Each structure stands twice: as structure tokens, then as C-alpha cells.
Amino acid sequence: MVSSIPVLESSLATPKVRIIKSDQLWEWLGAGWKDLWRAPAVSIPYGLLFVIMGYALIYLATARFHFILALTAGFMLVGPFLAMGLYDVSRRLEVGKTPTLGLALTAWRHNMLPILLFGLLIGVLMIVWVRLAALLFAVSFRDLTVDTSVSALFFSGGGLTFLMILTMVGAIIAALVFAISVVSIPMMLDRKIDFVTAVLTSLTAVRANPGPMALWAVLIVIFTGIGLLTFYIGVAIALPLIGHASWHAYKDLVEDDQIEAQPY
């Protein structure tokens, strides 16, 4: 039985992706939960930054309810990138080093250019998503006023159609972001690797493990959704849990013997 596959068949220098079982997902969550409470003074404040960010987005979009929906969904798109500091916390705990909030917030410096390029890609996808949401809203509600937007969204045929289309478009973009980021971001933080190889490794991990990765994506949506439904308060716990668990997902999915490690 094949236990791993190379990212590029013609190259011996690229990483290999392991074939995993769905049972391992629960091990990732368990390990993530342990990491959260091994470094609560870092993980929870880091999560609270996302709570503050969520409230700031709501405040900025108060006059346009449909933008709140788009930005809330977009929160899930940028989450894997913004959770980079949590990967650094788990990385340090793994080797017995002490994580700090300052180190977590500046973790991107370990591999600046590839991480910056990935951030730009995520930023472009976020802009595309918000513009598409605005376009769909404009087409669906040509004569809608701000005062009637909420009721029209949830209690009219046009509103329900808009929400269904928005959900489908958002799911497609979210699936793309998940596929390119599920292991690429922690990998760029952990190893001296370029942006393209990291993204190809992430895509290969999803292709090699379609069932477990689909379930992992669903679990991420569920935990993040619970955090958002508690008016962002639950994000302070949900996001660190998923962030730490994602580190352990990367370590299980990618063989790293061929790649030089980043310094701490």
C-alpha cells in the first residue's frame, strides 16, 4: 500500500505527501486543544485579536448589511493566513521552546517573501469575493433600501435566491483557498521552501486525501461558524484550536526530510 506520494514525480528534492486516515483528524483536534492550554497566555490573546477584528469589520459595514455577510464569510478565507502565529506557537511547543505573543505576531519573518506572496494571493481572492458579493446584491436588489435590507434578505424570494447564490460562490472560493493553504502556510513557516512548491504540496495533499480533507474543511467551517454565531466571542477559542490543530495536520500530511528547516 502506498503511504506517501511525491509532489512532483520528476523531482527528488520536493516533499512527499502522506496518505492519511480520517481518524487522524480527531487526533489533530486533540493535539490542538492541548497546545491551546499549554500556552493560553499566547493563544487566547491571539484569538481575541480576531474578535476585535470581527467587531471592527461589523462597525465599518454597519450601513450595508450585505457587506457584513460577505466580510464574515471572507473571515474564513483569510483565517488560515492570519493564524500563522498559532502555527508558530505549536512549532515551538513541539521542540520544547517557549512561545510568546511577540514571536507569534512576527512569525512571518521566518520566510518573508514566500509568505508575502501568499498573502497577496489571499488578498486578491478576498477582493474578488467582496466584489462578487456586491455585484450579486446589486443585481438581486436593484431598488432595495438600507432600512429594508435585512428583512428582504431573509424573508423574500429574491433575498433567498441571493443567499443561495452567495453561498455557492463563497463555497467555491473557500474550497480553492482551503486547497492551496491547508499545508502551505505552516510549511512556509517551518521550512525553507518557495511559494509555488508550498502551494503545490497543499494541492497534492488534498488530491491524495480527498475524503479526510473534505471532512477537515467541514470541521473548520463548523468550529469557525460556532465562533461567529457567538457574536465573535467564541472565535477567541475556536480559531486557536483550529490553528494549532492545523499545525499537526501539516506535520502528519507532509514528509519533510528533504527540506531544510527554518531557524527559530
Rank of each mutant, 00 (worst) to 15 (best):
E27V: 12
D88G: 03
L25D: 08
W26C: 07
V78M: 11
D35C: 06
D35I: 01
A41G: 13
F65C: 07
A31S: 13
A70G: 08
F67K: 00
S43F: 00
A61C: 11
R38M: 09
A70H: 04
Y87D: 03
G74T: 05
A83F: 08
R92P: 06
T72R: 01
L93Y: 01
E94S: 12
A61T: 15
R92C: 06
P80I: 00
L29V: 14
T62Q: 14
L93D: 03
T72Y: 01
F81L: 13
F65Y: 11
P40C: 02
L69V: 01
W28P: 05
L69G: 01
R64A: 12
A70N: 00
G85T: 02
V42F: 00
Y87F: 12
P40E: 03
V51I: 11
I58P: 05
T72L: 03
H66A: 06
Y87G: 06
G32R: 01
Y46D: 06
L36N: 05
L25A: 09
V89W: 01
G32I: 00
Y55K: 14
F50D: 04
A41W: 11
L86F: 03
Y59A: 14
F65H: 15
F65R: 09
V78P: 00
G30V: 09
L48I: 15
G85Q: 03
F65T: 07
A73W: 10
L25Y: 07
V89T: 07
E94H: 10
L29K: 13
L69I: 03
I58Q: 12
W26K: 14
A39H: 03
V42A: 00
P45R: 02
V51R: 10
W28E: 09
F65G: 07
V42C: 00
G47C: 10
G32H: 01
L29G: 10
G32K: 02
S43V: 02
W37A: 05
I52A: 14
F67R: 00
A39L: 05
V78D: 03
A63R: 10
W28T: 05
L86Y: 00
M76C: 08
W28V: 02
A41N: 13
G79D: 14
Y46G: 05
G54S: 07
D35E: 09
I52Y: 15
D35P: 06
S90A: 13
M84Y: 00
L29D: 12
A56L: 15
G30I: 09
P45F: 03
L86G: 06
F67Q: 02
S90R: 02
P40F: 02
I44F: 13
W26F: 15
P80F: 03
I44W: 04
A56F: 12
L86M: 04
P80Q: 07
M53N: 11
G32L: 03
D88Y: 02
G79Q: 12
G47D: 11
F67M: 05
A41H: 11
F65P: 06
M84T: 05
G47R: 07
P40N: 06
K34R: 09
W28Q: 09
P45W: 04
S43T: 09
E27G: 11
I68E: 10
L48S: 10
L25C: 08
R64G: 04
D88K: 04
V51F: 10
W37R: 08
A61M: 15
I52F: 15
Y55R: 12
I44C: 09
W26S: 14
V78C: 04
W37M: 09
A70K: 02
I68A: 05
T72G: 14
